[in-house]
Computed example of a mutant assay.
Amino acid sequence: MGAQVIQEIVPPNYIRTVTFGGNELRSGIPVVRLGEPLHLEFDDIIGDEADYYYTIEHYNYDWTPSQLVKAEYLQGFDNIRLFNYENSYNTLQLYSHYSLRIPNEDTRGLKVSGNYMLNIFNANRELVFSRKFIVYESLAQVEVEVKRARDVKLIHSRQVVNFRVDSPDFILKNPDETVSAVILQNYNSKTGIYNIKPQYTVGNELIYRYDELTSFWAGNEYLDFDSKDLRAATASIGRIEVRDLYHHFLNRDRIRAFDPYTYNPDINGGFVVRTLQGQNPDIESEYVWTHFALETYEPLEGGELHIYGGFNNFELDESTHLEYNSRTGRYETARLFKQGFYNYKYVLLRKDGILDEGFISGNFVNTENIYTVLIYYRNLGARYDRIIGTGSATSVNISN
């Protein structure tokens, strides 16, 4: 019986606005170089200054537990309480804002590259939530390019990632057995392509020129809203009400799948917390009930509609689920967001469990996406998978 593949634990409703990354905080899975710092921040909207603890675990390429003991991959100690937290100031919604930086005086750093999980526990040692992150070494050069699909039926809707790996100073022995590649679109680990083997080997250079195997649906640019000013309507926020908290009603959205592609700059599903009502957005940003409305005129058959984005690490749950309102002819929902700039889109979760990102938004080959390639290597007899290189490219300059 094989080892169990680990999955991230989704935060409960009272844990909000989780940001996690390296020197640059971005949505999705963090990809950091060995030796670079990691930052985690989140809010507890119960606001009772609860105690939280963290641990770090190392995993194999396939997210099964690695054979390494903690002393082999961690300098210092984990299972330490988060000491850095502040309470919200001058907000209707009380919350406590927690932050963690690694390295710190207890956890001095990581020793090896590979897949990792950061776990957050409460005072009762119950796992509250967990987040994956990736640590790589720069031992190989990875050149990435984005191309159109060779299949004429998909040439306008899919993007293909080709890449090559060059390691002049690091010999890759038996690459068909020891090397595996992963491709991520917009740092979303849930839609990544895994276990890609070299197509050709030329000397010490590995060539990956697949078509169908390394292709992604192109999607469409994300929609967005900006709630940095609580009291001002904008191009996306049509109406504001004040009840127990502020309520922002977004202007209705439409199905875009059949419209011509229109370039609209986005941040690939990400978000940025910010406010005009205070100096420190971490503790002075308000929480706002944000109301979404997608006009369809009649209910859709065959699945559930959700709002989707990095605001909750691309998870689908009750807070993202839209219900059809027969009176308005729209799918509607309301979700609590911390003030800021947010990307989002509407997606269909089909009855068979498959996520269709393009059902509402469409798939257009000119859509700007960022692709990240990770190269895993385990030499024969080694006890863990290293990540020896990474490369990235955007589809802005997509070619045939």
Rank of each mutant, 00 (worst) to 15 (best):
S96P: 07
S99A: 10
L374P: 01
R33S: 12
L74K: 03
Y261A: 01
Y261K: 01
I370W: 06
A218K: 05
A382L: 05
R26C: 09
N174M: 08
Y52L: 11
Y187I: 10
N79P: 12
L276H: 13
T17L: 08
T214R: 01
N188L: 02
V152A: 12
L92A: 14
N162Y: 01
N188A: 03
R330L: 13
S99D: 12
G35M: 01
E298T: 08
L94V: 11
W63H: 07
G114Y: 08
E49P: 15
F364S: 02
R378P: 08
E221S: 10
V165F: 00
T234D: 09
V112F: 05
A232Q: 15
N124R: 13
L245Y: 09
R274A: 14
G203H: 07
L294G: 00
L380E: 14
F216A: 06
P265K: 05
F359R: 02
Q185V: 01
V396S: 11
G2C: 14
L100F: 01
L380Y: 13
A382K: 08
T333L: 14
F216H: 02
L34N: 07
L230R: 14
R148W: 06
R350E: 11
I155Y: 08
L230H: 08
D244E: 14
P12L: 01
T328W: 02
F292N: 04
I387C: 04
S113H: 03
E205D: 13
K345M: 15
W63I: 05
S326H: 12
D317Y: 00
E298D: 10
D169H: 09
R378M: 06
V365A: 05
L74W: 00
I134R: 03
I354L: 15
S392P: 09
Y208L: 02
I183T: 03
L276N: 14
T107A: 11
G269C: 00
F129S: 06
V10L: 13
E177V: 12
G329Q: 09
A293T: 07
G310T: 02
I267F: 11
L110P: 13
K70L: 13
Y85F: 15
L245W: 05
A232L: 15
F271P: 05
E357A: 03
N60Q: 10
N264T: 14
N90T: 09
R243K: 15
L139Y: 02
